[in-house]
């Protein structure tokens, strides 16, 4: 949309996308749970939103939305942020932001191929972030027991892969469908 003001890197639109993105992420994380049927395990809608917003606005916005959203949620629920997971979520936003280039959502169509690419990429990112980064962070920062944190990480990775596959893909498809196609705006 903007072609002129690409001056100081972070555009006003990106600032707002970060702010609103994190607000929605927070609300989804705190208040919305879609049960999976397995006890105490919910589909994480917030990660699906993170995928969409990162895919639309790129890695920096993705990173900040994950960071701010997760920090706030931790702060309000548990008092203080659990940094290793905050970092993991931020990194996840960053990695998904890299998909902006090949998704090119602003320009209209979303082929099955792109959707598959997106899902492979999100699965890889999820595994990297939750099975590698978060547990190592737990061990380094909090000296937690490896057995425990890797198990937690693996469960989270699976839940999030499924969440993003379902909610993220759904949001992408709905977004593209809602955009009027180029030069289709002709008065009858």
């Amino acid at each position: 949309m903007n072609n002129k003001q690409k001056k100081s890197g972070f555009s006003v639109r990106s600032v707002v996308a970060t702010g609103i993105g994190a607000a929605v992420f927070f609300v989804l994380m705190k208040f919305i749970a879609i049960p999976t049927g397995i006890s105490n395990t919910n589909i994480n809608v917030a990660e699906g939103w993170l995928a969409l917003i990162a895919g639309l606005f790129g890695p920096v916005v993705g990173l900040l939305v994950g960071f701010i959203g997760h920090t706030l949620n931790d702060a309000v629920t548990y008092g203080s942020p659990w940094w290793s997971w905050v970092i993991a979520d931020a990194l996840f936003g960053f990695l998904l932001g890299l998909s902006k280039r090949f998704l090119a959502l602003e320009y209209g169509d979303l082929s099955a191929k792109k959707l598959i690419q997106f899902n492979i990429w999100q699965a890889v990112s999820n595994i990297f972030v939750w099975v590698v980064v978060a547990p190592i962070g737990d061990i380094l920062i909090y000296k937690e027991a490896a057995q425990k944190v890797f198990l937690q990480g693996a469960v989270t990775a699976v839940v999030n892969i499924v969440s993003v596959a379902v909610i993220g893909s759904l949001l992408l498809v709905a977004y593209v469908k809602s955009r009027p196609k180029k030069s289709s705006l002709r008065s009858e």
Binding site: K177, S178, P180, L185, E188
Partner: peptide
């Protein structure tokens, strides 16, 4: 009715 297949965003 004439617009029933339009995307709502339009």
């Amino acid at each position: 009715d004439a617009m029933r297949h339009w995307p709502i965003a339009a």
